[in-house]
Amino acid sequence: MKRIVSGNNAIKMITALLAVGILSAVSLVFIYQRAIPKIEANVREETKEAIESIFPGAAKIEKIEGKEIFRVEDAGGRLLGYAFPAEGNGYQGIIKLIAGTDPDISVIKGMKVLESQETPGLGAEIDSKDFRAQFAGLSIERPVEYVKNRKPEKPYQIEAITGATISSRAVVTILNNGIREIRKALKDEP
């Protein structure tokens, strides 16, 4: 007698759990499908704004087919350069940034951090105006280097943020890797 009751109980438990599980999955599918286009649009919009902040005269931003690289042109159709997203490990988590180069990939046009979890007031300064300004016009004939506590002497050097060497170095590494990637990817572009 008892056995039957417990058997019934088990069925009841399983049905209840299944019902909740299925309802949850169905409603999530519904929400997901409605949210996804908006989220993608947000990401695109953010990328576009970042690129425009790097290339002030940008009029046309076009993704190169099959590559994570954007061609940036001004209103006259002249090629201003290339922009590319890059990411890597920072001090507390992943740093995602967007950087732009001139058409020859010899000079950096600018850099903007999209996402980071660095320490506020220290590592988070990698997205500050002063730090970002160091990248505009930075030569990338050679890999970028950082110096500590003094003004950079070479055209391919930047000064690390005091107290946030790890975050600064992370940005430099991410940038160098990104440049290597885009050089490889753009070899066969006109």
Partner: peptide
């Protein structure tokens, strides 16, 4: 309708569902 023994997992699923909804809403 909630059997006592499985109430905690059921509540957790319900909560996780609403949290996912809130997360997507914020992201969108």
């Amino acid at each position: 309708f909630v059997p006592r023994q499985v109430r905690i997992p059921m509540f957790t699923i319900i909560i996780a569902t609403f949290v996912t909804a809130a997360d997507y809403f914020l992201k969108a």
